[in-house]
Nucleic acid binder design. Structure first.
Lengths: 238, 238
DNA sequence: TAAGCCATGTGAAATGGTTCACAGAAGAGC
DNA sequence: GCTCTTCTGTGAACCATTTCACATGGCTTA
């Protein structure tokens, strides 16, 4: 994947506290982790949350600063309050409706995945150009033909879209989406979308993610072998 | 998504030319883009490749430095040579076989997606704990029960795995994978995997990606965001 | 009330990554 | 051959993000 998000944060003069994209991602993870906590855990320390999220205590505290922090030195952070503060920082998100373009294998699995696992943003409509699929209901969501995109997006105030399509048509679809008023696109197609300024694109490039993994896994194994051969005495836990 | 990548390339003190993960991802994108070029384009300039990949000319040149650059000032880069150099940098990747754990909706769509679109790494085996699926063939790939994981991984020298599962079992599966000798995991489950040092994990967190998108798409409507999230400016003309 | 502990919040330093800017090279036109 | 143009390759500057380190302050125990 790639996660080529290109946002150049310049001029954070005084407008907006300038939250970094990385921090936003982690806040999302923190929130999910916190929400899964048993009720028997009303408080949590930064190092505990860090361990659960694969982060570091300092990182967690730094991230939490942007939501107006609320930790108490001896108890840690109040879980419920944290969730609430994160939600407040994300305020408005819950009102976003999502459109999915592409009801193929990937599209359908995304519907299933998000319906099960994600409750703040929901898929409001599915679009596909295959006439066999349109005007049917896929996993409980109505599938429209592409021609109705603009109408449905406007009627339902949809602001973000997921592109789950083979490359060829992704750019064309992105243009239709932005023309219909979409301001955010989650793109699974392995192409770089050109969109008007003001529209945000997040790419998930599975092939690139695999390449990256293969590259580092290889060197990782070399490193492992090197360590094993060098000395077999000292095991480092971490 | 998130792309919380936790690959501990700590201590790359002086070993390994120290290529950054971001550069590796982009090289993967460059290679794919180059491979799709028509034969009528034997040479390409850094700014052309940048425009195609949503990057900048300086970034492209900087990235290409790590593969031992080969550009000619007046012609640009020889496409075929570039591909070859990138492959050399990724040397060994082509020998990686991939295991997929989870033959549910997401798993199956990944098989289809990768079979169609990706030719350097291929899925060698699928594993699932559902007895209805195992010992069947899914999209042309044999599906084994979890119990055979270790044997198959060893027999086929599989070194990287994809986890396409609901959260609950992901950690457990990660442990089985690393025990079987896997050194790289592409994780779609929204949990933070704990793996032994030397194993590389790349997370694709679709829910976090959507959150990030929603956050920036929302603010994207503001004047401020226009500047911050700019996508297509910066890709200059020249 | 005082002392000890431990975790927070946050400047400041370190690290990682991107962009700038320019020297140098190679073709094009004259 | 000389000059003009335009590109590459790369040191240096710049910016973003992470980590360090410590002052601060609440809680507990006595």
């Amino acid at each position: 994947m790639t996660f080529i998000t290109r946002n150049q944060h310049k001029a954070q003069g005084q407008r907006n506290p300038g939250v970094s994209p990385k921090t936003i991602e982690r806040l999302s993870v923190y929130r999910r982790t916190l929400a899964n906590l048993p009720a028997s855990t009303p408080f949590i320390y930064s190092h505990e949350l860090a361990a659960m999220c694969g982060s570091s205590a300092a990182q967690v505290r730094r991230d939490l600063m942007v939501i107006g922090t609320a930790g108490c030195p001896s108890r840690g952070y109040a879980v419920a309050e944290l969730i609430e503060l994160i939600d407040k920082r994300f305020a408005g998100i819950s009102s976003h409706a999502v459109a999915l373009v592409g009801a193929g294998t990937l599209g359908r699995s995304l519907i299933a995945y998000l319906q099960r696992r994600y409750h703040r943003l929901s898929i409001a409509a599915v679009f596909d150009k295959d006439p066999d699929l349109t005007s049917r209901v896929v996993y409980g969501i109505r599938c429209y033909p592409m021609g109705e995109l603009r109408r449905v997006v406007e009627e339902q105030s949809i602001s973000i879209a997921v592109i789950a399509l083979p490359d060829a048509s992704a750019q064309e679809v992105a243009e239709q989406l932005t023309a219909a008023g979409i301001t955010g696109i989650l793109n699974f197609a392995p192409v770089s979308l050109r969109v008007p300024s003001g529209t945000c694109v997040v790419d998930i490039d599975i092939a690139a993610a695999l390449d990256k993994l293969a590259f580092f896994a290889r060197t990782g194994r070399d490193q492992y072998l090197r360590e094993v051969m060098d000395e077999s005495r000292d095991k480092h836990g971490h």
